[in-house]
Design a protein around this nucleic acid. Structure first.
Lengths: 298, 298
DNA sequence: GACTATTTGTAAGTTTTCTTTCTAACTGGC
DNA sequence: GCCAGTTAGAAAGAAAACTTACAAATAGTC
């Protein structure tokens, strides 16, 4: 899939024969319904024969009509900024070689689009206001999603207080479940195979009246029942396992939205954080200890 | 045939059986790709059998999966669902003005492209072979990048042993710096403002003969001097602060590459891991304790 | 804990969808 | 008008998508 379908079709309009031109034209004008067509149904609509459809698809570089449909799935179209030279370069390489990686790029981009769409949903707004106003915010993630929760917490801590990463070090989730009152929000990151803890935590939190926001992959069938909002991040990326990487983007957008909600007063807090980090850890470029100096001596 | 698919699916979520629920859920969360699926491909994704898909479709009032797809065409109405159209739709909002978010999407996509480019560099290959062969692999990240390191470690642990997350809990990095021999690799995730620790750690590791792979944002000017390879992830995303989210994707690609290098024998290890997790934690759907049962009583 | 009812998967059909092969029709050049 | 070269269709074959029938597994009931 080096070039978007639309380009190939437009090209074909110039050069191809009558039947092919008719096909190209129809496809261009009704791309939205293409996935619902079969080679036969298309042939009927354009009044050509079935083999012609197959041949045409092959003539513009696909394997057949079926292959064309598959490619349409991730076809971003001709977004000018997307089709920059660098992306084209990458795609060239794909063509040249064995590289199934670039295929993953398309899928990951689609996931990213889905994430940004989620950020426009009504649920999103609910989550954000809650995360901005609740007295306590808890986040949890298990197995490989632990780090996601960690990232989320670290970032959110910069802009508000009362943010905690839940873990099972103590053997229970008393921190949140035995909490006084329930002015809290819980965010759970999870992807299959789902840790039993994630579900249990969500169930108990809901039972305790604590709102739950669930961030999962599309395979989580128990989520709806135990969450107030559920954001689904596509994870199929063509690698040997699924990639939850784009959850990080979603977490980031969430934090950003909370920031917008809280307004600029939080900057003070952020500065305080930076100062504190500077005091106990120091940033690169901060004065004092350089290599070979003070830090060697306790 | 009167009700839209979405409603029927949501209904099914409540009432239906386990397999049906899984199907309903998946369809709901990934409706955009439904037209591209076949009963078989869907079945594979949701891990049910092909006839189950057909039966489910019939149970919610269609004639079969094919019929469901046909109806979907109408149900979808005018909302965009081709990924290219969705993207365009998002961009429209930016133009309309009510939303500066989508500009971020473009930038984030560019970052993704950069990440995938990095995965084609010669340095990449060096890093991967080292991560596959070194006796020990250490990863570190500070402040908000701590979670990135965590993710990387958690994933890599699934496919090889001797993977450790470094932190400063003990007040030093003796674990790696005072190690016997130096058959190790160190991966550091960092973004500004850079924690002093990151640089110190890199310096000392290099001095100790341990190869350092650095994953940073584009502003890190001290990195080249103290690393063997340096991968730069663009982080400018138009939000109130930079986003390192795409580092997660890079980490993921790295792990995937190491997996490819190690070959399929690692699957055994992965299965062992899953079993262990099952034993000590349990996955959703594993037998035993259900809500209201055993787990309440210690 | 055995028994029924429901749910789900396997294996073998059936139908649909796509491709291949071959032939007919059209195009342009002489 | 006749002849290469191209283009398109019909028919048959291959592959896939889907269904049916039945058996195994699971859940619910007494």
């Amino acid at each position: 899939m080096t070039k978007p379908l639309r380009d190939r079709l437009t090209e074909a309009l110039q050069t191809a024969s009558k039947a092919d031109r008719a096909l190209a034209n129809y496809m261009l004008s009704d791309m939205g319904t293409l996935p619902f067509e079969t080679a036969a149904s298309l042939a009927a609509k354009v009044a050509v024969s079935e083999p012609t459809v197959g041949r045409f698809c092959r003539s513009i570089g696909y394997d057949g009509f079926k292959d064309l449909k598959q490619n349409l799935k991730n076809d971003m179209g001709d977004q000018p900024w997307l089709i920059g030279d660098r992306l084209r370069d990458l795609q060239q390489r794909t063509k040249a070689g064995e590289d199934q990686l670039t295929r993953g790029l398309e899928l990951e981009m689609a996931a990213l689009v889905a994430v940004y769409e989620a950020a426009h949903s009504p649920e999103w707004h609910d989550t954000v206001t809650r995360l901005a106003t609740a007295k306590h915010v808890f986040a949890a993630g298990f197995q490989t999603e632990r780090g996601m929760a960690q990232i989320f917490v670290n970032q959110l801590q910069y802009i508000r207080e009362g943010v905690h990463l839940l873990d099972l070090a103590a053997g229970n989730f008393a921190e949140i479940l035995a909490m006084e009152g329930n002015d809290a929000a819980l965010v759970i990151f999870e992807a299959r195979r789902y840790s039993r803890h994630a579900r249990m935590l969500a169930e108990d939190a809901k039972a305790a009246g604590i709102p739950v926001t669930l961030i999962t992959d599309p395979y989580c069938d128990w989520g709806h029942a135990v969450s107030n909002e559920m954001f689904v991040v596509p994870t199929a990326v063509n690698l040997f396992w699924e990639s939850t990487a784009q959850m990080a983007s979603l977490a980031n957008l969430l934090v950003n939205a909370v920031f917008m909600e809280l307004g600029p007063e939080v900057e003070e807090r952020m500065n305080k954080f930076a100062r504190l980090h500077g005091r106990f850890t120091g940033h690169v470029g901060d004065a004092t200890p350089k290599r070979g100096e003070g830090r060697r001596t306790t």
